[in-house]
Design a protein around this nucleic acid. Sequence first.
DNA 1: TGTCAAGATGAATGCTCATTCACGGTGAGC
DNA 2: GCTCACCGTGAATGAGCATTCATCTTGACA
Lengths: 207, 207
Amino acid sequence: MPRISPERREAKRAEIVTAARRCFARDGFHQTSMPDIAAEAGVSAGAPYRYFASKEEIILAITGDTFRLIFDPVRRLADGADAPTVADLVLACLEPIGGQSVTDAAGHDVSVDELLRCAVQTWSELLRNDDIHARANEGFDGVRASIAHALRRGQQADTVPAGLDPDQGARTVMGLLHGFLLQRVAFGLTDTSGLAASLRAVLGAAG
Amino acid sequence: MPRISPERREAKRAEIVTAARRCFARDGFHQTSMPDIAAEAGVSAGAPYRYFASKEEIILAITGDTFRLIFDPVRRLADGADAPTVADLVLACLEPIGGQSVTDAAGHDVSVDELLRCAVQTWSELLRNDDIHARANEGFDGVRASIAHALRRGQQADTVPAGLDPDQGARTVMGLLHGFLLQRVAFGLTDTSGLAASLRAVLGAAG
DNA sequence: TGTCAAGATGAATGCTCATTCACGGTGAGC
DNA sequence: GCTCACCGTGAATGAGCATTCATCTTGACA
């Protein structure tokens, strides 16, 4: 006999995750204390432990969400493109990192700024957390495969140069995704649509 | 009357920095304790405080070195190119992140793996340390300006498409630098020379 | 070689923080 | 409206850590 309904429980858990993301985006994983998260969520210091066994588990939930929310739109666009150009695929990568908010699985808005700041923290974290590293690699390889596959379709449709190795090309596109992501949160990149024009200028003739 | 000569003092300081970089690369800035650094350097727990006022100051020294060692070779190559193509400039960015070691100001070898792992940590750190953020922006803007200038020279020499905005183009090249850097330390990128071929395949016709 | 200012040591100090738990509340199902 | 299994609370616990400092050691200079 649960004291609260599963829906209520899930909603509360989501509130804690949201509070944690806000804290992590502001102060980083390791400068944020569990009491900080509890206070941000408006609950007592012990409350988060009713939903997560440890701080590590909260971090894991956040990093998982981060990958999903950034990568899913990219994969959707890449998989849906029939005769894409290289520029099209780069633009697909810019899509989730150019806006102000995205919608999570539960239908709630998540700030892209917070999301990207957590993504950068995640890169640091995966360097010494094997669990996060494995999940990140899984996510990375999935998107990379989607992009490589799209490049192959582009080569068949003659919209992508035949001389391009699809796997190397996919790595290059992923490089731009990560690089522009970092520039947005750390190096004052505001105009992602302007980049589109530049890309077409360089790639115009070739793809 | 100093007890040790300035050279000795400088050498000892460098030993502590080297030990710190090894620790930071392995465990991260915040999972590394001051006693860890001291032990790695083979000195007592109090010794680092004879050379640095705080852990923060060591982190600052490391992040400064990191930017210098990665960016200086890129700027040197970009500034030295008379009629560069876009691919040339991307390759200049790949140069410092493709090797096994680089040489620091004092002539000592520094492991590129350690350097790049510290670089990724630095991105997290600059999100909430204004001092590091300011230095990072300074470094970023410097390289970006060098690349933009090289692109302009390329446009005059007709080796770079005239329709490319040099500032946007420089951001794109920087994006690849950061993106490939991350892939090397986190996502199993080993063959940077293969990327060169891909780049030329995509850019071949245009730049 | 003697002197002593500065370097090195490592135990001690005073924090912060993750996590726990004993103690009230409260809502779902009867 | 009763019950109780679970929820929320917040003070307490214990570990870890940055930093300090009294004390010992050493090397540069005379």
